[in-house]
């Protein structure tokens, strides 16, 4: 049991140091390095898609394939649940 505790403390310390260094090296919030795509979408969303909400314009128009994949994942999840729970007792 003592060995398990020592191993747990060591693993916890490694993970904690990793997270702390990641937090220290993290990019500042709201200051992107490369903003070409952001500027294009912010400038042209209203003309090209007619939507005032830029996020919906990206999700359903510019990056429609992503939403298609998300819908496929949801469909597969529901199909899996149906296969799991179908007709437990006749």
């Amino acid at each position: 049991m003592l060995t398990r505790n020592i191993a747990g403390v060591i693993v916890f310390s490694i993970v904690a140091v990793f997270f702390i260094f990641t937090a220290l090296l993290m990019h500042p919030f709201g200051v992107p390095d490369e903003s070409d795509m952001d500027d294009y979408i912010i400038d042209n969303t209203q003309e090209e898609t007619g939507a005032n909400n830029g996020v919906t314009a990206v999700v359903f128009d510019y990056r429609g394939f992503d939403t298609l994949g998300e819908a496929t994942v949801l469909f597969a999840a529901v199909t899996g649940v149906i296969v799991l729970f179908r007709r437990l007792k006749k």
């Binding site: 005032n52 919906t56 359903f60």
Partner: peptide, 9 residues
């Protein structure tokens, strides 16, 4: 406004 976006929503 927004064409097919509301229909897709």
């Amino acid at each position: 406004t927004a064409g097919i976006l509301p229909l897709m929503n």
